[in-house]
Design a protein around this nucleic acid. Sequence first.
DNA 1: GATGAATGAGAGTTCATTCAT
DNA 2: CATGAATGAACTCTCATTCAT
Lengths: 210, 210, 210, 210
Amino acid sequence: MTVRSVIKNKAMPRTPEQYEQMRQEKRRKIMDVALELFASKGYHATSVAKIAEKADISKGLLYNYFESKDDLLKEIAQVGFQEVYENLDINHDGVLTEEEFVYFIDRLIEIINKNKKFWLFYTHILMQPNVVDFVGTQLRESFVPVVQILMNYLKEEGFEDPAGELFFLSSTLKGATLQLLFSPLDFDISPVRDRIVKLYAKNTTVDHKI
Amino acid sequence: MTVRSVIKNKAMPRTPEQYEQMRQEKRRKIMDVALELFASKGYHATSVAKIAEKADISKGLLYNYFESKDDLLKEIAQVGFQEVYENLDINHDGVLTEEEFVYFIDRLIEIINKNKKFWLFYTHILMQPNVVDFVGTQLRESFVPVVQILMNYLKEEGFEDPAGELFFLSSTLKGATLQLLFSPLDFDISPVRDRIVKLYAKNTTVDHKI
Amino acid sequence: MTVRSVIKNKAMPRTPEQYEQMRQEKRRKIMDVALELFASKGYHATSVAKIAEKADISKGLLYNYFESKDDLLKEIAQVGFQEVYENLDINHDGVLTEEEFVYFIDRLIEIINKNKKFWLFYTHILMQPNVVDFVGTQLRESFVPVVQILMNYLKEEGFEDPAGELFFLSSTLKGATLQLLFSPLDFDISPVRDRIVKLYAKNTTVDHKI
Amino acid sequence: MTVRSVIKNKAMPRTPEQYEQMRQEKRRKIMDVALELFASKGYHATSVAKIAEKADISKGLLYNYFESKDDLLKEIAQVGFQEVYENLDINHDGVLTEEEFVYFIDRLIEIINKNKKFWLFYTHILMQPNVVDFVGTQLRESFVPVVQILMNYLKEEGFEDPAGELFFLSSTLKGATLQLLFSPLDFDISPVRDRIVKLYAKNTTVDHKI
DNA sequence: GATGAATGAGAGTTCATTCAT
DNA sequence: CATGAATGAACTCTCATTCAT
């Protein structure tokens, strides 16, 4: 018996606030469990039944929180992406200094390391054709400003073919992300990081910030 | 009517060799069709019925050639990988010259461009860890000699941290592969290729060999 | 604030009678809402959740008023039928004059027009035999006196085969009911009504009474 | 072992014709069973599992023959309706004589009596809102020529208000159909039939043709 | 009395796989 | 060798009903 119910010695309905909090917590739990499974098994190989079981709820209840399996996927993508993006802390307005560039790279590595599960999930989704097109779209659109800033940075640094250079840098970052995601836990990405810094922030000391 | 049947104006039993060849051809057709579908729709979204239909055979017959859908997947992975690997034509014995390194890079890009379907499939499979673990293992093992040769090359070229440099190069190559696979058809990878050549084959002209 | 609570500026416990009245009102509201939905969507396509929502109560509370969805259906059928029957205002005792017969026909049409929702619901239910068998029984039993009176009327009017005539009249009335229920809103039933009057109340002017 | 398989003492695949025949037979069986259940329980109250069970097949197989439960319903409606309509043998071109009108009425009664299950099904569907709108549309469209012919007949017979008369006749026929469908097996519709004939084919002997 | 989270049985549907022919 | 009808388990999703509060 809770305090509320003791006062009048009578069962009382939960307040809307209590319900709301319960909902949020359970919602979060379902999303966590689903992320875990989607990341490790893939979307199609993960059944709603399995998610419900791992979240200690009935299959039916899941549909009290999410409209469909697809909706669950979208919510995870959206929330996860939002968190990641907020953490990235892009310098929207000004131009990137070399220090800021290094900071950006380090933040990127840190974010991926901290959200491996989410990035695995993301990678699965992006590789799986036809699953949720909007995820890819969302990703691409969100990175437009990042790309713009990096482009300006490369121009400023005096590269003769900044567009080509951006492709190269972009490839390297994508490849490094894969390395991080699919390598053993103790994998040390710092050589790659240092090499990037040496190439694109020549005048900066390459102290590890990670 | 075939030539054979005309000669005697009577159906002659085919020789065991002919049967075996027909089997191999049909097997190959099934695998081609399945690769096509797996690559474009994904493994789970591709039904055995669809594969059989596209291969112009009955569902039942497919199971005469492959034990299961999973087995079909493994066979495709194995054969496809073998072909790719044979094409890579690594200089197993000697040491890589700068020209040979550039040739290696160009071959790599060429192979990926020529087998996009297979690489897409491969990427899907690798992301779906539990489907075929052995594929990843196979991939890693097969690349051991490649890695060794590249390592020697980087040492020879005088890089102070060849292991770190290898990580970097490896990241870049992986990232470039992704770019190739998931970009529009007319995507031009040459800036990335040129940059790699400029970094790792300094004394070589960067004529496109692709 | 209600008058009662103003008088003493203090919430007074409601009397049992007030509680009972509130219960009855809520019960009625639930039944109204359910009738509306059953009539427009059908029984199976109407969820308890939807009924509760439209009645502005929780799902749980609904089960405080009705044992089950089926029970709710039965109650609606019973009450609705009772109301209709009371409105029909059959001349139980005496014999029907021609004027009274015409009045009866006009009342019938009026009742159906005024309770289309209920009759639609009723029609659905009657077609779904196993849902509530008792409804049909109830209907038939309730109409026994009506049938008796009409039979007497037809005898009195001098029809040679009053039983057969009753079948015919009954068919016509049922068919006319269907027309009324499933035709557009502006459908005019008066030709059918006039024809009935002409056939069965020959000496009466056929002024519209509806 | 069949004759075919004995000849060569070797299992041979069925010919396309054999398969087609098997399919048609099973298809028909499923439709019969489904019609029976839809007619007695209603569409929503009949589960695919129940249909499959009664048809002695697995649930899955049903989907080898029909795309969905809805599709099954449509097929039943279509085929059943087609059969009914073909039997109705409407005199499309000429004008109806009194004898032909009587014949039409008798055929109508006969058809309903012979296909009670189908008409029950049909009635259920039409009463159930939102199930399959196209069924109602189909019905209405199909009856346009019938209505036209009856209208002409009533004009020819000299009724002053043929449109109103048609409404009345139509109501009567609908009501009679309900009587036939929902009355006990031994129910005798002939009084209603005779009355119709007496009203609309005055100069014709009312010999029973049923 | 009143809430809505939670359940669980069952709905329609899909599909890898088997098997009589 | 070859067919495709047939199966059955598993899938996503719905919903009447219950129950702690």
